[in-house]
């Protein structure tokens, strides 16, 4: 965090922006067409005048088995940005990821490509297949740690809930 306190120059601002653009091309191995930026995993991007980039990420779950893969993908994407000489990727303990960090783009992709929904603020669910509100929780344990299982009463489809 202290590194961020140094006032950015025009050059570092432009480099930081280029790094952010590169991060937009990194996807989550669990959802191979959704960017980690849209999923809310990117917390900090810092670039020093000599081209050292530090990317601070937050995991959806601290035990996510994809963390090492995501870190490698981030390094690979950032290293090739012109002007970047060196890249560090760090996993931050805080803040804690929540579904509120996901973008509208990610939510739409989750629904259309994966029939995965996020819970509304009031705790209710909307079926990504038919749009019905008649969706009930079935099991806390889903196919992965980050998803639970629900069931749409209207179209009778299984719906997964990202949590």
């Amino acid at each position: 965090m202290t590194d961020l306190a140094a006032g950015p120059t025009v050059e570092t601002r432009e480099l930081t922006s280029a790094v952010r653009t590169a991060l937009g091309t990194v996807t989550d191995p669990e959802y191979p067409d959704i960017s980690i930026v849209d999923l809310g995993l990117v917390e900090q991007v810092n670039v020093t005048p000599d081209g050292h980039a530090t990317v601070g990420l937050i995991p959806t779950f601290s035990s996510c088995p994809a963390l090492a893969m995501i870190a490698t993908d981030v390094s690979s994407a950032v290293e090739v940005v012109p002007g970047i000489t060196d890249t560090s990727v760090i996993w931050l303990s805080t803040p804690v990821w929540s579904v509120d960090r996901t973008s509208l783009t990610a939510r739409r992709q989750l629904e259309s490509s994966y029939t995965v929904v996020l819970r509304r603020k009031d705790g209710t669910l909307r079926c990504p297949v038919c749009g019905s509100d008649q969706v009930g929780d079935q099991s806390m344990a889903g196919p992965t740690r980050c998803r639970s299982v629900a069931w749409c009463e209207t179209c009778r489809n299984v719906v997964e809930v990202m949590r």
Binding site: F61, S62, S63, S139, A141, G142, P143, R145
Partner: peptide, 20 residues
């Protein structure tokens, strides 16, 4: 099935915490 998945998820959390 749900128990299989639940123990799998809980195990994953605990191993992740051990690493951290």
């Amino acid at each position: 099935l749900e128990e299989d998945l639940a123990f799998c998820s809980i195990a994953q959390d605990e191993l992740g915490h051990a690493i951290a």
